[in-house]
Structure formats: C-alpha cells, structure tokens
Simulated assay, not measured.
Amino acid sequence: MSILGVESVIFGVTDLAEHTRFWTDFGLPLEQAGADEAVFRLASGSRVVLLRHGDARLPSPDPFPGDGLKETVWGVDTASNLERMAASLGGEVAVTRDADGTVRCTCPDGQPIALRVWAKQPFVSEASPVNTPGAHPRFNQHRIWRSKAIAKTINHVVFFSPDYVGSFEFYERHLGFRYTDHSKGTGIFARAGGAYEHHSIFWVNCDLPIAPDHFKFMHIAFGMDDIDEVMLGANIMEAKGWKNASMNSSGGISRHRISSAIYYYCDMPGKAGEAEYHADTDYVDDNWIPRAWDFRFGSLLWSNNAPSIFRGNDIPWEMTFDADRASFAPFRKRQPGKLAVGGKLAEITGADEHAI
C-alpha cells in the first residue's frame, strides 16, 4: 500500500481575505476564491484549502484552538490500497466515509486525517548546475533567473504530538509510513511510502518547553527548485510586509542538518503557524537506514544565529544507525501527557521552534 504525499491541507481561519493574500504572495496558484473559501492548487495537484471557522467541512470537534491546519488529506495511489488502509484504521479508531469515497478518522494523538485516491500530477522542476572552483558543469551558461517563486509541491507537514513515538507508529502501522530519522527527545521524521522527500511528516515532542501540551499544527513546507527560488520568495515576502518567522533565532535563510534542506520560514496571519520555502532536501528510498541524532545537532538547523545550545565546538556530531529503533525506548509512552524533561533537553527553553 502506498501514500503518494499530501493531497490537500484544510485550514480553519478567522480572516479569510488576509490568509488568501498571504498564500497568493507566497507563490501558490489561486484556483478559486469566494466568500467562504479559497483554494490554491500546486503543480503536483496538491491543494491548500482555506475555510472560515465554523464551516461544516472542518473537522468537529476542532483539534486545537485558533487558526491553523485542521485536517491533512493524504493521497493514496489506488482504490484497493485505500480500502486496505481504511480496514486497518477501522480496527483501532472510528472511521467514516464521505459520498466521494474519502476516508476520515482522528488519530490517537488528536490529529484529524483523511485519505482519498489521488492522481498526483507530473510537473517540470529545473535548477541550474552548480559551479565550484574545481568543477564547472554550468560552462558558458548563465544561471536561470527567476521573476517569482512558485511552490511545486507540499514536501511535509509538522505537528506537535503528546506522544511522538506513538504518532509515528500509528502512521506506520496503518498507512505504511517509513521511519527516516530521530532527533532524540525532539521528534521523529517519516516519509510516505510513495514519496522520496526525506520526510512527509514530522512530529515534535510536546514535552519540550517550547511546545504546547496538546496536539497542534506547527508548520508546512513547500518544495522549491533551488536556493535562488527560496531567496527570491524570501525577498518578495519581506517586501510585502510578511514577517520572517526565523528572524530572531535562525538567521533567515539557512540549511537544516538532518535533511540537508535549505529553508526560509514565514509567519502566517492570525498566529496560524509557519510556511516554509524548502529546497535541496535529501531524497531517499527503502534502502535508507534510519539514524538517531543528539538533539543539539540533529533537531534544528545550521546557522550562526541559532540559539547558543545548537552552536559551538561542544556540539556532538553523534549519529547512530537506528534500524532496530533502540532510540525510541526512552521516549515511549503508555499514555500521552507531559513528562519531566531534565538536563540538556530542558535548556532548549526559549529556543527556536522551527523543526526540520
């Protein structure tokens, strides 16, 4: 069975016009807009859907207060695989089905999800070769020069989870997600079986002092062609008055450690979360061996402006291959809920909230 990636994300918002303006400025193609909704469709076919709070199409009960991503719709490759996933989910949680065949449930951590058959669209993505002093693949050739940033895909979504190990294992058990990497005590990265981006979803540990004590949306990342497009998008968003969510902590444009991705975060209106421009991430398949990292190296980013706990000569460049998942044991919970967090992990208080 195979999920291809995020088919749609459904946002509940207060100010529909302001959120529509944000995503238009961000570079998402607007498919339709009305008094009660706005829909953006990317080249891959993925959609960002904005609905006003109280709309009957939003999950009920609301998974968390305020604006944000309220439901993730995963695209499944075939109808038979959708049926297998629905049957598997139904053995553990309540499952409903819409008239169009969309399957819906709420995960044990509180996350509403949906599944539907999806014909993911092929699209053109192009980046210029990178010259170095010793190799010149772009010889007698100027770089691609872009006039606007256009997101092509939804690369991943990120949520706070009160039981991040359990959240991953639920997705693995019923939806076939693959374990990619573990930032110990911070979160688990996993990819959909039919996707190759380093991760399709990341669950952040609610035990972190920066985290809420309940399920909540954190951010969504969009695939861009290269660093030029990320820089262009950042410049456009700044010129239009949107705040860089990383301004005081991660130094704007930088590169994540675990996934190698270049990034830039923007704050959404209404404290709804963050939108990430994302480029040059690692692409992996089932030959990838999961790794476990010390959270100071593996959890966040490479940046001279990162919080001091993530910088310096004493940062452990420690990684262990973790196919046996031995790293999960200290963070496994029988029941979700806050646990005391001590030592180095507690020192993250007030640090950057941006997970990879």
Rank of each mutant, 00 (worst) to 15 (best):
I3F: 04
I3Q: 01
I3M: 08
I3H: 03
L4D: 07
G5L: 06
S8N: 14
F11E: 02
G12K: 04
V13S: 10
A17R: 15
T24N: 12
T24Q: 15
F26S: 02
F26E: 15
G27C: 08
L28Q: 08
S44I: 02
S46K: 06
R47A: 14
P59F: 02
S60D: 10
G66W: 10
L69C: 15
G75A: 04
N81V: 05
R84W: 01
R84A: 15
M85K: 10
A86C: 03
V95C: 10
D98C: 06
Q111D: 02
P112D: 06
A114L: 09
R116L: 10
V124K: 09
S125C: 05
S125N: 09
A127G: 03
A127K: 08
R138D: 04
N140M: 13
Q141C: 14
H142L: 13
W145G: 01
F159Y: 15
P162N: 06
V165P: 07
E169P: 00
R173M: 06
L175T: 11
F177E: 12
T186H: 07
G194P: 10
A195I: 00
Y196P: 00
I201A: 02
I201V: 15
V204D: 00
V204G: 08
V204N: 03
C206N: 13
L208N: 12
D213F: 04
K216N: 06
M218I: 09
H219Q: 09
G223V: 01
I227V: 13
E229A: 12
L232C: 04
L232M: 04
A234F: 07
A239T: 00
W242L: 03
N244Q: 12
N244L: 08
A245F: 12
N248I: 03
S250K: 03
G252Y: 13
R257I: 12
R257W: 09
A261W: 00
M268S: 09
P269A: 14
G273P: 05
I289C: 08
P290Y: 05
F295V: 05
L300F: 14
S303Y: 10
A306P: 04
A306S: 15
W317G: 07
A323G: 13
S327W: 08
F331H: 15
R332F: 02
R332H: 10
R332I: 08
P336V: 13
A340Y: 08
V341L: 15
G350W: 10
D352S: 14
D352R: 03
I356Q: 13
